[in-house]
């Protein structure tokens, strides 16, 4: 395989051994939810919640030849995941957490009803058991196939996090490539601590939309994790190999 950043030819195995990070230039490849969970939690400690909650089609979305139902089926096969988010209880270096991880290969990790509902369930669980909440975002935004139902999930997840905030819960939001649109504009940006992976695309409007609208070439490094750090919207940029220890350390600091 070829690294898209430094164009080095790499062995797939070497990359996988290196947490799917390019050993030459530390380009962080996009990874699915299952892989992410295996990198992040103590072996075998992940207990999934609401595994069977699957998308339905509230609008009966049909546009030309494309139907939402077909798209769900295709992406289920492609990603091996039933929705764009997995939640569950897990241990990270022995610290108990409620973890949510988004799946970029399922409709671009977009947030529909199920993602919103799962995130809220994760918040409820975290309140109930006084655990920290860690959410790894990776999403193209709100899922347009569910129309205003998915738009409303932004408000819903934010309202749930307001409750979590009042319960003095710790929410660590991890932003990975890409985190855009309605996900950035709701729960992803509401972390007590916000961590980003190096080079990740993070923003509200997609870069293509911006370029088309204002008809100006976008500056180098626009909307990257580094850009967000510089403008004060993330606390730190953490390499994938350090993510586990960094999260564990932060949890220790915030523990009562």
């Amino acid at each position: 395989m070829r690294c898209p950043a430094c164009e080095h030819m790499l062995y797939k195995r070497t990359v996988e051994k290196n947490l799917t990070v390019c050993p030459e230039c530390t380009h962080h490849f996009r990874i699915g939810a299952a892989t992410r969970i295996s990198y992040l939690v103590d072996d075998g400690s992940f207990q999934q919640i609401l595994e069977d909650l699957t998308a339905s089609d509230p609008l009966g979305f049909k546009f030309r030849g494309t139907t939402y139902k077909q798209r769900i089926k295709d992406d289920e096969k492609k990603s091996g995941s039933k929705e764009a988010m997995q939640i569950g209880k897990a241990f990270i270096k022995g610290r108990g957490v409620v973890l949510g991880v988004m799946e970029p290969n399922f409709l671009m990790g977009s947030m529909g009803y199920v993602v919103g509902e799962k995130l809220c369930a994760a918040v409820d669980k975290a309140i109930e058991e006084s655990l920290p909440l860690v959410v790894v975002s990776c999403s193209g935004g709100a899922r347009m196939h569910e129309g205003v139902v998915s738009l409303g999930q932004m408000a819903k997840t934010s309202a749930a996090l307001a409750k979590f905030d009042e319960a003095r819960g710790l929410f660590i939001s991890v932003l990975t490539d890409p985190t855009t649109g309605g996900v950035t504009a709701s729960f992803a940006m509401l972390g007590d601590i916000t961590i980003a992976e190096p080079g990740a695309l993070i923003g509200f409007a997609g870069p293509r939309t911006i370029a088309e609208t204002i008809k100006v070439e976008l500056p180098e490094g626009f909307q990257t994790a580094e850009f967000m750090l510089e403008h004060g919207f993330v606390d730190m940029i953490v390499h994938r190999k350090d993510l586990r220890s960094e999260i564990a350390r932060l949890i220790d600091y915030c523990q009562k």
Partner: peptide
């Protein structure tokens, strides 16, 4: 998925 408000 959702590119926000394509204004074009």
């Amino acid at each position: 998925m959702a590119e926000w408000g394509t204004l074009t």
